[in-house]
Amino acid sequence: MTQATLLTEEQRRSLIGKESKPVSTVIEKGHIRRFAEAIGDPNPLYNDEVLARRSRYGGIIAPPTFLRAIHTEMIGLGTDLPGSRVLDAGSDWEYFEPVRPGDTITAVARIVDVRERPLRVGPALFVIQEITYTNQFGQKVATQRSTLIRY
């Protein structure tokens, strides 16, 4: 018996490399503070202007996973892709520059790979998506590669 497939090889290939619209967000100090409080991280680099100013960063910065909180066009979540349920299987972050209040961060998501694998519930698509975050100086501040499982 052959298993049903979700995508033809041509459809699969056409998805790889597809990019989202860039979305820009101005980073607010209050948002950083609220995010740090929500995760339960009292590090003064995220909430104390005086201590942060005296630190090697010279001011408040955002926690490592704060960029999850800015709006991104999640192309891997697109309703045009097969599968009605989506699982977030994890993230790989790489960091290049700190994110600071007042920065304008532009997020672009790109589909890096799409693979089909059988799960117990049926065929599933593993979509690897990489988001690149760039600041107003054109510096890449971080990348986040995540695996989304659609079934």
């Binding site: 991280d41 590090n43 630190s55 490592p64 299987a89 993230s91 972050w93 960091y95």
Partner: peptide
């Protein structure tokens, strides 16, 4: 990691699988 490395350490990569 950031609690452990303190202000002078720099986090370069962070990965996890749920």
């Amino acid at each position: 990691i950031t609690d452990w490395i303190g202000e002078y350490g720099t986090l370069k990569k962070l990965s996890c699988q749920y």
